[in-house]
């Protein structure tokens, strides 16, 4: 090996020791688990400044009349996001969320809702159970999809409580309110 190569290796080696010692770099034996601290709802519409104020942000989807309201502090009636829309068959909402911090160890969400409002069928007979009109699914991205279908009642309200899959003690509640248009 050439002397110059040996010299370079020695310089790099000693330099590394110096830099690591100076900066105090410490190699961790394992990555500490990072838990979710906050869940953020990602709205779909555009901001409606006329209805927004210090306590809420209002978003509208002009093409279908859907209005989303995101509250900066949880509304006293117990939800963080309020979505209202006129009913049409198979009216569907995709709820998207993200978490803080970005580097949580375990990603994913759990969803809780009133199962009596969901469309259910008997696993043996296939016949509908109850009078639920809401279909709740989770797509491959982990987002919740809520579909209102065959609704014979005039109106329906459906809350979704979102919690992180890492079990952190945080949650976000979305309320969806749909009503049939009256003629």
């Amino acid at each position: 090996m050439k002397k110059s190569v040996i010299l370079i290796i020695a310089i790099v080696y000693l330099g590394s020791v110096f830099i690591v010692g100076l900066l105090g770099i410490r190699m961790g034996l394992y990555n500490k688990t990072v838990y979710t601290e906050e869940i953020i709802y990602l709205p779909n519409g555009k901001v409606d400044e006329t209805l927004s104020n210090d306590s809420r942000e209002v978003y509208r989807q002009s093409e279908n009349g859907v209005m989303e309201v995101r509250y900066k502090q949880r509304h006293e009636n117990g939800f963080d996001v309020y979505i209202t829309a006129p009913y049409e068959n198979n009216l569907s909402f995709e709820l998207k969320f993200e978490v803080r911090p970005d580097n949580v160890t375990k990603h994913g969400f759990d969803y809780a809702y009133d199962v009596n409002k969901t469309y259910r069928t008997d696993p043996e007979t296939g016949e509908p159970i109850g009078n639920g009109n809401v279909k709740f699914t989770v797509n491959v991205d982990g987002n919740a999809v809520i579909t209102f279908m065959d609704m014979d009642k005039a109106e329906e309200t459906f809350d979704v409580r979102v919690t992180p899959s890492d079990g952190a003690n945080v949650n976000l509640i979305v309320r969806i309110n749909v009503k049939k248009r009256t003629t």
Partner: peptide, 25 residues
């Protein structure tokens, strides 16, 4: 009053907490 009535929020939470988490990968 607009929209249907729902179970209290904590009862909905109980229903979710006590269920199987099929979407956990």
């Amino acid at each position: 009053i607009s929209g249907a009535v729902q179970l209290p929020s904590n009862v909905i939470a109980y229903q979710g907490n006590s269920s199987v988490k099929d979407n956990d990968p």
